[in-house]
Design a protein around this nucleic acid. Structure first.
Ligand SMILES: [Mn+2]
Ligand SMILES: [Mn+2]
Ligand SMILES: [Mn+2]
Ligand SMILES: [Mn+2]
Lengths: 217, 217
DNA sequence: ATTATAATTTAGGCAAATCTAAAAATATGT
DNA sequence: ACATATTTTTAGATTTGCCTAAATTATAAT
């Protein structure tokens, strides 16, 4: 598997999870920030390698082998992210880019020893679960802030958008994994939400609310 | 700089050091396990990028920029090797291949934080010096076993060949960095050498003797 | 000083991954 | 149902890094 193939597999996996159906050429091209024709080429190549099935003009669906491979790459990515934050003083908004490269280094010993060295972490710095050696996730129920209920107190357990911009915004408002958040008010006009963070009250926009995951506490 | 360019730069650097003169196309091709025509192509490309100067039919010589870049890649390679041995339980014969990939991840923060995390090591698991942030090596005088004197006691401080085969051979004879070695006898017939390792005496061939570095103790 | 040998470069091609532009298939609106 | 819009695929180029085979230049031997 080449670097490009691995990145495509990961993208297809994420889109499949997100939309629970076959992945369209356009969606894949957009995710990969490339052109539809390139996505078509790669879909053909991955189909050839039995990593997915593809019906022309329909969409692509990962095979078991393809899904396993994607999960393997995701495991590497997230373990490296933990390493960067825990051991090398990276902040959660700096890790993604570097992990995007580290994830392609293909050595089982490397990954499994890294896992052990980090104490077998189950979540990455963005709250995403880390698959174990066998590819099993520890799934946790998460509620998106946009759908949280007024009056209830939650804990922040993850983010959807892992862009540096968004994560720095959260930092500047003292929101991170583990932060306790009480829903004070939902503004029907623009779907903004007033939150209580300890003694501080802040209002966040809908685009923030759609990218923050919580669980009841 | 692409992955291929980085590997070529490193190879040219090593050959320049070794032979103290311009690097020939054939030597480079051999080092890179590729064909002379490919070496020519890459030499042109690197000359175009001002990483080296090249006179056709003569040889290639790194520019300052080229040498700096090569040293940077070597720094990354050796730091990762230390990481793998010190933190991830790799043995010295397992690190080279993985470091060959890790060395291409280009993030100053990553490398410098890794350096700090490892406690600013000055030598890698094979006894090779690790350049610092500014590219300065701490050079140490080393004597190749083949030229060591009978009756003198030395300490093993490095290896030339870092292949798994050779390193495993050394392991099986309890020779590693720091091992104290006394030269007992040099056989003129085949240039083999009898060594004293503590109470044990072993005979090593010339090809071993040319790949082991010592210093007087 | 030729001739033979070795080293180096050029010419031409191939595979991977990308692109633009055009064609084909599918979906949508009235 | 039929025209229009959207999505997807194909066709043809491009770049990078590599290859083989042939031509060129340099070196060594007689
Ligand atoms: Mn990646
Ligand atoms: Mn993450
Ligand atoms: Mn390398
Ligand atoms: Mn080394």
């Amino acid at each position: 598997m080449t670097l490009a193939e691995e990145n495509y597999l990961k993208a297809i996996y994420h889109l499949e999870q997100q939309f629970k159906k076959g992945v369209s050429t356009n969606a894949l091209a957009e995710e990969m920030k490339t052109k539809a024709s390139s996505a078509t080429d790669m879909i053909k190549k991955l189909a050839e390698k039995n990593m997915l099935t593809h019906i022309p003009y329909q969409g692509a669906t990962l095979s078991d082998a393809g899904r396993d491979y994607a999960v393997k790459v995701i495991r590497r990515h997230r373990l490296w992210e933990v390493f960067l934050v825990e051991k090398l003083n990276f902040s959660w908004d700096e890790v993604h880019e570097v992990a995007e490269h580290l994830e392609h280094i293909n050595s089982d010993k490397l990954v499994n020893e890294l896992d052990a060295f980090l104490g077998f972490p189950t979540y990455d710095p963005h709250g995403d679960p880390i698959p174990d050696k066998e590819g099993n996730f520890t799934y946790i129920e998460k509620i998106v802030l946009a759908k949280a209920e007024v009056g209830i107190t939650y804990k922040c357990i993850g983010v959807d958008d892992t862009s540096s911009k968004f994560l720095k915004y959260l930092d500047s408002n003292n929101i991170g994994l583990g932060t306790i958040i009480k829903i004070l008010y939902k503004e029907p006009f623009d779907n903004s939400i007033k939150l209580g963070l300890g003694k501080v009250e802040i209002v966040v926009s809908q685009s923030v609310a759609k990218n923050l995951y919580l669980k009841k506490v």
